[in-house]
Amino acid sequence: MVEWEVIRFSFFNLETLQEIWPMLWRGWLMTVQLCVAVVPLGFFAGTILATIYSLRIKSVNAALIVYVDFFRSVPPLVLLIYVTYGIPLLLGADIDAFVAVLFAFTLNSSSYFGEIVRAGIESIPKGQMEAARSTGLTTLQAMRYVILPQALKNVAPDLTSNTIELIKATSIASVVALPELLRMGRVAQGLVYNATPLIAVAVIYLIMLWPMVRLLSRLERRMMSSR
């Protein structure tokens, strides 16, 4: 019984929660801002990469593959620290932490999104492009109106999954002191000296992402059965 009391006090301390709630709220808002910026940015950059790849220009595609594999091989945290420490030293001026994070995440996530969209494009039969071109649509128009709508639908589960991963990954921005949710949780924990803020952060992430994980499971099952 004593143990339960300890757990309640350290992990689920309501008084503490009340005290630090405003901090977590601000952190959460920053996390949302970060996601709202970085998910579309990575997605569009990735779609552009995949579209360029589909033009089948040999040297360009070799370069694209190196780009994509490079940024899939470097841990995002390493990239993030590199960008936040390196660029100010290089420019001799500070850059906004938010911008640095955005930059690093776009490099990283465009690679993942690019691979997914490329697979989607390759899943569309060749005849679709031919039919579209035979009516006079340009390659880009055919891409925009005929190929991509089908391709993105085919890889919807992977796109959802990658979006979840990206949202989760924004938590590493806490390491470079961007005041997002996890960062604020750790600051709060330092103030109150118990673990409730950390548990609260975990719960907030769960509330945000669990529904998406469930949705993803359903999407994946639907794709599987429609095959």
């Binding site: 989760k168 990954a169 924004t170 938590s171 996890l182 950390l198 952060v201 992430y205 992402l209 669990w210």
Partner: peptide, 8 residues
């Protein structure tokens, strides 16, 4: 799957 690894 839902929790960020860093949070864990």
């Amino acid at each position: 799957r839902a929790l960020p690894p860093l949070v864990i």
